[in-house]
Amino acid sequence: MKRIISAAVIFLLIGGISSAALSTNQQATFTVSVASVFELSIDQGFIDFGRMNPGDMKWNMPPAGITVQSKSNSGKPWYLKVSNDSPFSSGSNTIPNSNFSWSGWTDGSGKWYGDGTNQVSVTPTLVYSSGAGEENNLPNGTVNHMKFKLKVPNNQVPGNYTTIVKFTMTE
């Protein structure tokens, strides 16, 4: 009889302990891929030196400069370069690149490589390298301004001469 009474008491104690606070949780993972932006734009694609005589020189072309805008959100340094596909040409006649040079200025915080004597070359030449904070320069980008100078040789053959100047942005 004693054993039966003891078992019944234990049962009631355990029945009174089951009201502890409950908690449970679940989880979900969220992801997004922010797209890369790496863009280069210029505000004008045709520069006309007009009519020039042998021996003439024109600089500061175009007068307002070509606006070159570079945008990046890669978080890495980037560089702006300039070159031309070939020297000014009219058929088989050319004006050497030694007579064609670039200049300008930057609105950015990086390094500007122009010194007033930079010749245009078929090999891309550094114009600008990004500065601190410009590895991501969104939303407005970094703006550089380019101008060109041309001297027609004294013995230049007449004709319509053209060249294609290329701006390149790289990391």
Binding site: A21, L22, S23, T24, N25, Q26, Q27, A28, T29, F30, T31, V32, S33, V34, A35, S36, V37, N73, S74, G75, N136, L138, P139
Partner: peptide
């Protein structure tokens, strides 16, 4: 859920974990 990417956000794969909890 709604997400707006800031106009100057650096490119990359972003993640987070959302935890749902029920307590009584």
């Amino acid at each position: 859920y709604m997400l707006t990417i800031p106009t100057d956000q650096t490119a990359g794969l972003y993640t987070t974990r959302i935890v749902y909890t029920v307590t009584q």
